[in-house]
């Protein structure tokens, strides 16, 4: 073994002398943008979308396929607004705000499009576990009965629930094809690409390759798809089982933020508890380490708490 100096032994001091305060380089943004939303001027930072401008103006814009941690795909079209000079309505979630734009968010045209989108979805899908969508339906007076889906006159996405593993349940009759799970599984987070949209038109659906069961696919059970699903089409099996047993009660649940007990990355876990047991683990979207994402251990590895499988009767 060669002999070489070690910095700590002789000094016996704190190893890191105080130095200059490190900082992040400034990546200069452009000048702010001023536009008109519902008759009022709004100024937003460069790079903002119309959705940002709307929320700055205090307008609550409905969104389904939008999530701040994912690239906007603007496919659900429930966030459309009227933009002066544009032949069609434009999606607020992805349209960059530009100087001098004039935007209406509650015109007759906007309300009709939003209502129709909600009717289209609710006449095609089971929306029972999609509280946001239900709330929007009420807000815009959507009536799915106009299409006859109840009495078999309209095509729907009704299909059996897929339960092919111990962790996930996939009920695609609830899937509104918002692409969020595909994005979370893909370049926006997990980069596993276990699922994609397959087929075309109304037959489009979320699928593994050749629709093989999840255990045969590339899925690594990070649960990030479940974390972003807006309709409950993707659900943790633990939640699904509790719901089936009639024991799931969100009004009785509390959440606590803590740190994942596994590797040293320091992911914030939000533990959802009900009757002193953990029923679900998520992560906050605005957390700089996770952006809401976890791995299989963080997502499901909490089951040892309370003594593990065998000892859980004690908890």
């Amino acid at each position: 073994m060669s002999d070489y100096p070690t910095p700590d032994a002789p000094s016996l001091t704190i190893p890191v002398p105080r130095g200059p305060l490190p900082s992040t380089p400034d990546r200069g943004a452009g000048p702010p943008v001023t536009l008109e939303v519902d008759g009022e001027a709004v100024t937003v930072p460069a790079g903002s979308t119309l959705l940002d401008a709307c929320s700055k103006r205090g307008v609550d814009t409905p969104t389904l396929c939008y999530l701040e941690t994912l690239s906007p795909v603007n496919v659900c079209r429930v966030c459309v607004v009227e933009l002066e000079g544009s032949r069609t309505l434009v999606p607020a979630c992805s349209r960059p705000a530009a100087e001098g734009m004039v935007v209406s968010t509650d015109s007759e045209r906007v309300r009709l499009s939003r209502r129709m989108v909600l009717e289209f979805l609710s006449s095609s899908n089971d929306v029972e576990t999609a509280p946001e969508l239900q709330e929007y339906m009420e807000r815009y007076g959507a009536d799915p009965e106009r299409y006859g889906s109840r009495n078999g006159q309209a095509a729907t996405q009704a299909q059996p629930t897929k339960i092919d593993n111990e962790l996930y349940v996939r009920d695609y009759s609830k899937c509104i094809l918002c692409y969020k799970c595909v994005e979370a599984c893909g370049v926006d987070a997990q980069n596993t690409f276990a699922i994609a949209v397959a087929g075309r038109g109304f037959e489009s659906h979320i699928a593994t390759e050749f629709d093989v069961p999840l255990p045969d696919s590339a899925c690594v059970y990070c649960g990030n798809c479940i974390g972003v699903c807006p309709t409950g089409a993707l659900m943790f099996k633990s939640e699904h089982d509790l719901r089936n047993a009639g024991e799931w009660d969100e009004s009785q649940q509390e959440t606590t933020d803590t740190i994942c007990p596994y590797c040293g990355v320091g992911c914030t876990l939000t533990l959802h508890t009900q009757d002193n047991r953990i029923v679900k683990a998520t992560s906050p979207l605005d957390q700089e380490v996770t952006s809401g994402n976890l791995c299989i251990k963080g997502r499901f590895g909490w089951q040892f708490v309370g003594g593990g499988k065998s000892g859980s009767s004690g908890s």
Binding site: N165, E166, L167, I296, K297, F300, G301, W302, Q303, F304
Partner: peptide
């Protein structure tokens, strides 16, 4: 000790 307490499909 911890991780064997949940069922992983992998």
């Amino acid at each position: 000790v911890q991780s064997s307490q949940y069922a992983s499909p992998m």
